[in-house]
Deep mutational scan, measured.
Amino acid sequence: EPLWIRPDAPSRCTWQLGRPASESPHHHTAPAKSPKILPDILKKIGDTPMVRINKIGKKFGLKCELLAKCEFFNAGGSVKDRISLRMIEDAERDGTLKPGDTIIEPTSGNTGIGLALAAAVRGYRCIIVMPEKMSSEKVDVLRALGAEIVRTPTNARFDSPESHVGVAWRLKNEIPNSHILDQYRNASNPLAHYDTTADEILQQCDGKLDMLVASVGTGGTITGIARKLKEKCPGCRIIGVDPEGSILAEPEELNQTEQTTYEVEGIGYDFIPTVLDRTVVDKWFKSNDEEAFTFARMLIAQEGLLCGGSAGSTVAVAVKAAQELQEGQRCVVILPDSVRNYMTKFLSDRWMLQKGFLKEEDLTEKKPWWWHLRVQELGLSAPLTVLPTITCGHTIEILREKGFDQAPVVDEAGVILGMVTLGNMLSSLLAGKVQPSDQVGKVIYKQFKQIRLTDTLGRLSHILEMDHFALVVHEQIQYHSTGKSSQRQMVFGVVTAIDLLNFVAAQERDQK
Rank of each mutant, 00 (worst) to 15 (best):
F271A: 01
I272V: 10
V317I: 11
L378P: 06
Q406F: 02
T456H: 14
L380C: 10
G328A: 05
F448Y: 15
W351N: 00
L429R: 12
T260A: 07
F295T: 15
I272A: 03
F404V: 09
A506P: 10
K484D: 03
H480Q: 14
K283C: 15
I396N: 10
L460P: 01
H372W: 15
I238S: 02
K449V: 07
Q511D: 11
V504H: 11
V280L: 14
L347G: 00
K402R: 15
M343S: 00
D411W: 12
I463D: 09
S428A: 12
K484Q: 12
G414P: 02
M466R: 09
A301Y: 15
K484A: 05
G308C: 01
M425Q: 12
S313W: 02
K345W: 00
V420F: 15
R350A: 14
Y262G: 03
R330E: 10
D411A: 15
K320I: 09
V281Y: 06
N424G: 14
T294A: 14
E258M: 09
L457Q: 02
E465D: 14
T496E: 07
G268A: 01
N424F: 11
S437I: 13
L347E: 01
V495P: 09
D277E: 07
A413F: 14
D455V: 13
P408N: 00
Q476F: 15
P251T: 08
V333M: 14
H468K: 12
V375L: 14
I498E: 11
F271C: 00
L358Q: 08
W370I: 01
K366D: 15
V434N: 10
V491A: 15
P383G: 06
W284T: 01
E244D: 11
S485F: 15
S427P: 09
T257Q: 04
G379M: 12
V317R: 08
T314Y: 07
M490C: 14
N288M: 06
R350V: 08
V281A: 05
H480Y: 12
K366A: 14
A249Y: 04
R509E: 15
E252H: 03
E253V: 14
K446W: 15
G312W: 01
F346E: 04
T482L: 14
E303N: 02
S461Y: 05
A249K: 02
Q489C: 13
I477R: 12
G379H: 12
R350L: 12
F469S: 13
L325A: 03
V315L: 11
G458A: 13
V415I: 14
Q302H: 10
P436F: 13
P383D: 06
T389Y: 12
N341A: 05
R452E: 11
V281L: 15
G266S: 01
E401N: 13
Q435F: 13
M419Q: 12
Q376E: 13
P336S: 11
A321S: 06
G432V: 14
A301M: 14
R278G: 07
L335T: 00
G441T: 04
S348K: 13
R452S: 08
M352I: 08
Q489F: 13
R340V: 06
L417I: 14
E324N: 11
L471C: 11
R488W: 14
D362C: 03
W284V: 01
V281P: 07
K433T: 12
V495I: 15
M490I: 13
Y342V: 02
I451V: 14
L387S: 13
E361P: 06
D337S: 02
Q447C: 14
A311D: 09
K345D: 01
Q256C: 15
G493I: 14
M466K: 15
L358Y: 07
G423A: 07
E327F: 09
G304W: 00
T274H: 02
P243N: 06
K355S: 07
G356Q: 07
K449C: 11
E360Y: 15
E377Q: 11
Q406V: 02
P368V: 10
V386H: 05
A470E: 04
Y269C: 01
W284R: 00
W284Y: 01
T385P: 03
V434Y: 11
G328W: 06
V409A: 12
E290I: 05
G458I: 08
R459E: 07
L464F: 11
E265V: 00
W351C: 04
L305F: 07
T421C: 07
K359Q: 15
I272P: 04
R452D: 10
A431E: 11
I444V: 14
D349V: 07
I463C: 14
R340W: 02
S338M: 07
L299P: 03
R374D: 05
A505W: 02
S381A: 13
G393V: 13
A316C: 05
K355Y: 10
E291S: 13
L358W: 03
E377N: 05
V494D: 02
M298S: 03
V317Y: 05
V440K: 05
